[in-house]
């Protein structure tokens, strides 16, 4: 008399390995105790991957559906192809056939009943991976949101930074000749045109402010992101430092103006003394700070231009370093 429940374990293992459908495997384990122990040991080696479903609280595997199961289990009429998988979405189960169409399966009093072919247009934020003998779905944004999002935002920032540095690298070489020509032209123009002295002064100031503006555009953003990388604090160091620098510069400006005004009085007296004989009309034209008037000599102009270029070289180097 054969006794199948006494079959050696190695043979039961061999048999269980041939049961690639999960409900066969589960039922195999439900036959008797010795078979159950084999199934319990072998379930991790089972070749069949179950459809994995993530619900809000837990992750579930739902077995493939058989045509007739107990009341407590899924009852879905099997079509010609059979259903490949079951998908869980918003407290509903969807049967999935081999043409990747969805059927809604309703839960009515702990009993699963097939609904009439309701097609689902999309699964919302549930991701579904469809395989031949295995599929799984999970709700994106609930389980893996936190980590994924962080990684994504990091990636975004890196990409943005890369693009930004690329842009600055592309643009700078082209803008260099323009800037050079413009500054050089502006620098030597007084020798060809008779500019008004006060206009020249204003032009110098304008040029200085343009430099300042471009510098702020380039460096403020870079330095603020550098500060972000260095510290975790959200305090806007770069901007506050810029403001402090402004205040310092303004203070220095005030000091210089004070000194210049002090020496101006002496100069004016000198000028008045020298040109005492001339008319009052002449006085108006000299009513400009004589320090700036000294630019009229060729050597001084050259020096000024070189100083500008020298400064410009440093700026370009600094921009390049910040970019890389």
């Amino acid at each position: 008399m054969s006794n199948w429940s006494d079959l050696p374990k190695e043979l039961l293992v061999l048999v269980s390995k041939r049961l690639s459908y999960i409900n066969d495997f589960v039922y195999f384990g439900a036959v008797c105790r010795s078979w159950q122990s084999v199934a319990a040991d072998e379930k991790h080696n089972h070749p069949c991957q179950l459809p994995m479903l993530r619900t809000r609280q837990e992750m579930l595997f739902i077995s493939k559906m058989a045509s007739h199961r107990d009341e407590k289990q899924f009852i879905v009429k099997t079509t010609n192809f059979g259903y490949m998988d079951v998908v869980y979405y918003e407290d509903q189960y969807y049967a999935l056939d081999s043409l990747v169409r969805f059927l809604l399966v309703n839960k009515i009093e702990s009993k699963w009943v097939q609904n009439e072919g309701l097609k689902v247009e999309n699964l919302g934020n549930t991701s579904l991976f469809v395989g031949d003998n295995s599929s799984f779905s999970f709700t994106v944004g609930i389980i893996i949101r936190s980590k994924e999002k962080e990684e994504q935002s990091n990636g975004d920032r890196e990409a943005l930074e890369r693009v930004r540095s690329e842009i600055s690298f592309c643009c700078q070489p082209r803008s260099v000749p323009i800037l050079l020509v413009n500054t050089f032209g502006g620098g030597i123009s007084p020798y060809f045109f008779q500019w008004n002295e006060s206009f020249l002064l204003m032009g110098t100031q304008f040029a200085a402010s343009v430099f300042l503006g471009t510098t702020l555009m380039h460096f403020l953003s870079n330095s603020s992101s550098t500060f972000e990388n260095v510290t975790t604090k959200t305090y806007p160091f770069a901007f506050m430092l810029t403001s402090a620098g402004y205040l310092l510069t303004m203070f220095g400006d005030c000091v210089i103006t004070f000194i210049v005004n002090a020496s101006l009085r002496v100069d004016k007296i000198e000028v008045v003394e020298v040109e005492e004989g001339a008319a009052g009309k002449k006085m108006a034209s000299v009513n400009v700070n004589p320090i700036f008037l000294r630019t009229s000599s060729f050597g001084d102009t050259l020096l000024l231009i070189f100083a500008l270029y020298f400064h410009f070289v440093f700026e370009v180097i600094a921009v390049g370093v910040a970019g890389s």
Partner: peptide, 30 residues
Amino acid sequence: LDLTVEKAASMIRGRTPDQIRENFNINSDF
């Protein structure tokens, strides 16, 4: 061995535990 194992598996496939027990003449010890 392969042949016999396959035959045993074929007697399990698509059947409920009760049907499997009947096939193999097993008494449930649960």
